[in-house]
């Protein structure tokens, strides 16, 4: 029997059934209306660098620029058009289809309450220039982007992993990275704390949170039929009944027993 081939370049979950004639509709990309504020934004970017595409999608302007022009475009928008807050910066992985990442910069003009998104395409193994001198918020966002997506950033003051541990391998948000982690990820804490030789003792991760092994006396004790920790499996079925009670029947040494008659129930707020 042969194992069916599964593509490794995109391990994202797929729909198990798609109609043969299904064509996904698209959100309309409207042209930027003449004379609007957004048109002036586009003009300001055009003056500074080349604009590949500009459209309005769901009420927000999207401007595509070349990846080497990202700082120029943001600088024009910040200084001429008042986009003084970088509210989000990240990347989208298109390695499998187009061999690169789409980096987006989500900007906000606080005075006019206007938002736009500057996007650029970065090929794999290419780097974007840091926008940290323009916006301090890019500091952490770019570190996170490097950490999770593996998009390199040039001239960043402190480009180091932010979210994952320093000794982590791989960039988890890439489409090639499985959701449950590779082997390194799955054994990370065991290797680090107990060493690789303890892998056999601790065993692989249980990825099914619903699974309970009643003969696993190390971790589970059947309520009402308790066995000592680590007892052999055959003892489980022969376990004597151990009654469980809310409080011990005979009472506890020096502790008053709760009785329902002597307690008061507060049923509403004073």
């Amino acid at each position: 029997m042969m194992r069916p081939y599964t593509p490794k370049d995109n391990v994202q979950k797929k729909a198990y059934y798609t109609d043969r004639f299904w064509v996904a509709p698209r959100i309309p990309e409207e042209p930027v209306p003449e004379g609007s504020d957004y048109a002036e934004d586009v003009a300001a970017v055009k003056k500074a660098c080349k604009v590949l595409n500009a459209y309005i999608q769901r009420g927000q302007l999207v401007i595509y620029v070349n990846s080497e022009d990202n700082v120029t475009a943001l600088k024009a928008l910040k200084e001429e058009r008042g986009y003084d807050m970088l509210s989000e910066l990240s990347a989208v992985d298109f390695l499998a289809e187009r061999g690169g990442f789409e980096v987006f910069y989500q900007l906000l003009n606080l005075n006019a309450a206007r938002r736009l998104r500057v996007k650029c395409f970065v090929e794999e193994n290419h780097a974007v220039e840091s926008v940290n001198p323009l916006y301090r918020s890019a500091d952490w966002a770019e570190r996170e982007m490097w950490d999770l997506m593996g998009v390199k950033v040039n001239n960043h003051p402190y480009l180091k992993r932010l979210i994952m541990p320093d000794d982590w391998e791989g960039h988890p948000l890439r489409k090639t990275y499985p959701l449950e982690g590779d082997e390194f990820a799955q054994w990370y804490e065991v290797d680090k704390i107990f060493g690789k030789e303890a892998r056999d003792i601790i065993g692989p991760e249980n990825r099914d949170p619903g699974r309970i092994d009643r003969y696993d006396t190390e971790r589970f004790a059947r309520l009402g039929h308790e066995v000592p920790r680590g007892a052999p499996a055959e003892m489980v079925d022969k376990a004597e009944e151990t009654p469980i009670s809310y409080q011990e029947e005979e009472g506890v040494f020096l502790i008053q027993k709760l009785s329902a008659e002597n307690s008061k129930v507060l049923d509403k707020r004073r």
Partner: peptide, 26 residues
Amino acid sequence: PVGEVYVPTESPKGELGFYINSQGEP
């Protein structure tokens, strides 16, 4: 539909935004 949105809301702590990029898949 295929496309992307960024939607900000005012959570108690500040601007909580969701950027969703959809390729027409579920």
